[in-house]
Design a protein around this nucleic acid. Structure first.
Lengths: 274, 274
DNA sequence: TCAAAAGTGTTTTAAGTACACCCATGG
DNA sequence: CCATGGGTGTACTTAAAACACTTTTGA
């Protein structure tokens, strides 16, 4: 496939279009972001958001999902567009407009790291970010704000936890996102009077759940510098009483192929308006 | 400026980037949308959202504002990006990705109609839309949903009213947007215990206010087909008691150049969460 | 003087908040 | 057997929802 002065011609100039994804993960205490180390210029060697150029045969959402899978092996996660970044000089290579996405991944997705384009990938504490390429720090800061808004409107906090979780797991997600502390009992009561989750048989799942968590934790590559390894798994702590476990109740068994679309639920109202 | 095979060449294909704006207006009862009649192919003669191609020397927000001014003479309005529409075949001319904006205009902006590109412009009741070009019906439907979310989070409902408004004006905005009815007294009480608005001297402004409204109403071009003319002005109805009038309190007299940026206020909390 | 709009109450009901206690379990 | 995490209950406070009366003013 030799390049023989082949290319694409347009009457008017056109910017390039990319996607960049702010991948949020929750380690039981803090929110983390998955970054990749750039393997090419510009900003080679610096940390950056995973993303890349949109192809002509895909939508912008497909592009974001594809780049995520290619660069970080993260698949089937919650993706939501939250902004466009189009400052004229934001990319030294020329005019590049980027569409920014928020991605929410579960702890079991923490193992998926490193793809083709990126030299490597690692999780970073949101409060200890390294120097970032392009305007990616701006993008992340906007994403933090947007994430807070999204959690108020859509029941997607669960997507930062395993399919099966405890009430305390969920509370800590809200505390990390909103930067506050909630009363343990009030949170539980408010959650319980919502019909969006259902309890699962503890004895049936607890061992499987814990073993999987440990596996996920051990398989983490100990990336250097600011590495955020998998901390203690939420409910497998040396605590005493085993937690009740819950899962999101799937109300629409019809459209099962993409339950991401069913995340908008009007019945939640101010349940999540913490 | 003759075109002599001049153009722009890129190694990889690039989609074109446009903006499309869903301009919401409030007539005292219903939400309306400002549409333009397309003067060129494709979809010539059909109604469409105002918008156009982004230039290389402007950001996407600047593009949306510019196109709005050019095509509808609407200026200095609230603009917020709410989505990207990038289906591959959404434009018969080729690959065009559009960034969709919500615009909120005041009744006094109703007179501004008709620009260069567009053959003409007219207001349409949201429930009586004409056949629309491209995927603009999809965009409008998403915009309706997003507008509801935005009004819950940011105090921008005022931007659908004049600078000076009555409590009932504001309540009707929320009723139109959310499709519900609110108790007149509860709404008033809730609003009054918010410190975001301030009363203005009635005797000082009422006549000016009413005269301006009438002027705005009369100067409307009686566009045909589905024309939505300016209905009766809110507070100049044959009602009996004159309303107290309010205006948005500007808390930051520092950044006066663009008070649009100050619309995000954390102190409102669930005030607008109706 | 009457009809419709506007302003201001009160009572009831639900939700939020701040507490204290008991249980279960691993060390 | 005790320290710790986890489950549940109760009293207090605040906000929401439902509702009625009075005033104003153009016709």
């Amino acid at each position: 496939m030799e390049i023989e002065k082949k290319g694409y011609w347009y009457e008017y100039p056109r910017p390039a279009i990319t996607t960049d994804s702010v991948i949020f993960g929750f380690d039981g205490t803090l929110l983390n972001v998955l970054l990749i180390e750039r393997g090419a210029e510009p900003f080679k060697g610096m940390w950056a958001l995973p993303g890349g150029f949109m192809r002509m045969d895909e939508s912008i959402e497909e592009c974001a999902a594809r780049e995520l899978a290619e660069e970080t092996n993260v698949k089937d996660v919650y993706l939501e567009e939250f902004g466009i970044f189009s400052k004229i000089d934001r990319d030294p290579r020329g005019r590049v407009v980027t569409v920014a996405f928020i991605a929410l991944v579960r702890p079991s997705d923490y193992q998926v790291i490193g793809g083709d384009d990126a030299a490597r990938a690692a999780w970073f504490d949101l409060n200890m970010l390294p120097p970032l390429a392009f305007d990616h720090l701006d993008i992340i800061n906007v994403a933090r704000e947007k994430l807070r808004e999204i959690l108020k409107v859509r029941p997607v906090a669960f997507r930062l936890l395993e399919e099966v979780f405890s009430v305390d797991d969920l509370r800590k997600v809200f505390e990390a996102v909103n930067g506050t502390v909630y009363d343990r009992r009030n949170f539980q009561r408010k959650l319980m009077q919502w019909n969006g989750i259902e309890e699962v048989n503890i004895r049936h799942l607890s061992e499987e759940r814990d073993s999987r968590s440990f596996l996920c934790c051990d398989s983490l590559p100990d990336s250097s510098e600011h590495p955020i390894c998998q901390p203690e798994r939420n409910s497998s702590r040396p605590g005493r009483k085993i937690s009740k476990l819950f899962r999101l109740r799937r109300n629409n068994p019809t459209d099962n192929q993409k339950d991401i679309a069913s995340d908008r639920d009007s019945s939640i109202k101010d349940l999540f308006n913490y």
